[in-house]
């Protein structure tokens, strides 16, 4: 058993995958806590879709995938934050707009992939994740992104929490609500880009939302909840990568199923705890 694990870590690509996965899990676990708190799970999913043409476009133009992901996801986060807060909420127009933009972006990504002739493997890995193609440079770039994001989060963490829990009170207390919301969306874009590298653009939910939602069921106070969220995200990624290495099952499938099992278990534990 120990020998098998030693062998696993002797491979360069597995080291990179674990480094990237660990970094992404930590960032996703913390940012995800806020996503669940603010009820922005669906916005997260939509922002992640943007990652697909970003990643595919980057590959088409010979740039590292993570760069394309990061640029497009943060730009979209910024765009949504700046444009999003309209005076009158037209919910039908909003949902129709999101559906429209989502479909177009996915189609665009498909165009890019077909242009560099990546087809099924390319589509598969960008949409559903892979751990095979992560270079040492990307893993280190990811580490830098995560460190910067977490530093930013440490600075804005408390006011962000206030705004997320009670916006009117925070506004009355002088907290810059709009700036914080936009800032959070940018951080969300970065977290999504990082996560999408491992899980694929369509399955960021598995690291961004499921562990945080599970933590939310078990723990209420913010500090411990974030710790639990990160722990569960790490468990998801490590288990997923290991099983994927030994069984050849796709990583996207594994992290989603593990995340789902963790979430359902957390809900059951909570319900039994109440009874």
């Amino acid at each position: 058993m120990i020998d098998a694990l030693n062998q696993l870590f002797s491979y360069q690509f597995m080291q990179n995958a674990f480094l990237a996965g660990t970094t992404a899990a930590v960032l996703a676990g913390i940012v995800g806590y806020f996503v669940v708190l603010r009820g922005e799970a669906f916005a997260g999913h939509t922002l992640a879709i943007v990652g697909f043409p970003g990643a595919a476009g980057a590959i088409l133009f010979g740039l590292p995938q993570l760069l394309g992901l990061a640029v497009l996801c943060t730009a979209s986060g910024l765009g949504i934050g700046v444009l999003g807060r309209g005076a009158v909420r037209d919910r039908r127009a909003e949902s129709a707009a999101i559906g429209t933009i989502q479909a177009f972006l996915l189609a665009l990504g498909f165009l890019f992939v077909s242009l560099y002739k990546g087809l099924l493997e390319g589509v598969n890995s960008i949409l559903f994740g892979t751990f095979l193609g992560i270079t040492r440079e990307q893993a280190l770039l990811l580490l830098v992104i995560a460190v910067v994001s977490l530093a930013a989060l440490m600075v804005i963490g408390r006011p962000l929490l206030y705004v997320s829990v009670d916006e009117p009170a925070a506004a009355a207390a002088g907290v810059p609500v709009r700036a914080l919301s936009i800032g959070f969306l940018v951080l969300l874009g970065l977290a999504i880009a990082s996560t999408a590298l491992i899980t694929g653009a369509l399955l960021v939910f598995a690291l961004l939302v499921m562990p945080a939602a599970a933590a939310n069921q078990l723990v209420v106070r913010p500090g411990p909840a974030m710790v639990v969220s990160v722990a569960l995200a790490l468990a998801t990624v490590w288990t997923g990568l290991t099983i994927s290495y030994f069984t050849d099952l796709p990583i996207g499938f594994l992290v989603t199923v593990i995340g789902f099992v963790i979430y359902v278990t957390a809900r059951l534990v909570r319900r039994l705890g109440r009874a």
Binding site: M210, F253, V255, T256, F260
Partner: peptide
Amino acid sequence: GVLFALILGLGVL
């Protein structure tokens, strides 16, 4: 969202 992420994940399998 969790439910439909699972469904997508199954599709990947």
